[in-house]
């Protein structure tokens, strides 16, 4: 009997399983299918609860730009824009910082400091999100209010700073893993050419790892869009389009949390299901993209298990 063993193609010419062991394989398979069933259940429940929007022609009401339940306006577009603005802003803070930190890790810092920096990054992935939010409410919001005159201090900018701190470790770890895989011969060659460490990083290592950089950025974006607590606690939750950095915004995730907690009108609920479905589809697309980028996806998977 032939069996292909794992991912290394080794063909083993042995009797691999008894008939009596068939049931074990079945149990394991059923356990594995639970993930698939869960995904299908999530998708179908959300779609089922969104259906009334389409059959009753209310979809236009939900995809409009005003949220005012008392006045009968249930548009979630401001929240979509809020989510997008917040996660892009957080990414644009976190990504350059992650590149800087990876430069430190790979060519600049040495020895103890290097290990300490990496350990700090790893440890930061273990800090609960709600703790970031809590600290930010008391440490970042007051200065924002007083120094920048940013209204109440609960603003797009405040949330973006906090959120960038949350996604930074993810981006650094993915990028770092990709850079570590680069063939050491490339580094030797660039050193032999007389490139300074920084030039190596800029002209050799980063270009070689460009795909890993895209994956890291997309993954960070996914985490930023999916995060609820930071925007719920720090962004102020006013349902308006993000017109300035100092204004309060509401994200889709926070919208779901707020409406389920407070409202009970059917139309408000339906907007929540639409928001949930939208979030699910966007993060699904991101997962698909990361898988499609092939090999890069492998280390992502490993790094996601922080």
């Amino acid at each position: 009997m032939f069996a292909c063993n794992g991912n290394v193609e080794t063909f083993v010419l042995f009797r691999l399983s008894d008939k009596s062991e068939k049931w074990i394989e079945w149990i394991l398979l059923i356990a594995t299918c639970i993930s698939a069933v869960a995904i299908i259940a999530i998708l179908s429940l959300l779609v089922a609860f969104c259906l009334p929007l389409f059959t009753l022609g209310r979809i236009r009401g939900v995809l409009s730009s005003q949220w005012q339940p008392s006045g009968g306006y249930f548009g979630i577009l401001p929240m979509c824009a809020g989510s997008l603005a917040l996660s892009l802003l957080a990414l644009s803070i976190a990504f350059p910082a992650a590149m800087g930190i990876c430069t430190l890790l790979h060519v600049l810092a040495r020895g103890v400091f290097n290990r300490f920096l990496l350990a700090t990054v790893r440890f930061m992935t273990g800090i609960p999100t709600v703790v970031y939010g809590f600290v930010s409410v008391f440490l970042l919001v007051p200065p924002m209010r007083e120094w920048l005159g940013a209204g109440t201090g609960f603003s797009l900018l405040t949330a973006a700073f906090t959120l960038s701190l949350l996604i930074l470790p993810t981006i650094v770890l993915v990028l770092h893993a990709r850079l570590e895989q680069i063939d050491p011969i490339l580094r030797l060659a660039s050193e032999a050419l007389g490139l300074t460490p920084i030039q190596q990083m800029r002209h050799v290592l980063f270009p070689v790892a460009s795909r890993g950089m895209v994956v890291a950025a997309v993954l960070g974006m996914g985490r930023a869009i999916g995060d609820t607590l930071i925007s719920l606690m720090v962004a102020g939750n006013a349902p308006q389009f993000p017109v300035s950095l100092y204004h309060s915004i509401r994200t889709l995730t926070a919208h779901v949390a707020l409406v389920v907690a407070t409202d009970s009108r059917s139309m408000a609920y339906q907007s929540v299901f639409a928001a949930g479905l939208g979030l699910f589809l966007v993060t699904g697309l991101i997962t698909l993209f990361i898988r499609k980028s092939g090999k890069a996806g492998r280390e992502v998977r490993r790094e996601k298990g922080f």
Binding site: S35, I42, F49, G226, V256, T283, T287, R301, K304
Partner: peptide, 26 residues
């Protein structure tokens, strides 16, 4: 099956919560 696991890993926690909530409504 690995793809489903990845999808599950990428699902935001608020969507997971919403799933529980809709399951109760259902």
């Amino acid at each position: 099956l690995g793809f489903f696991v990845d999808l599950l890993a990428g699902t935001p926690s608020i969507v997971m919560g919403l799933f529980g909530f809709t399951a109760i409504l259902f």
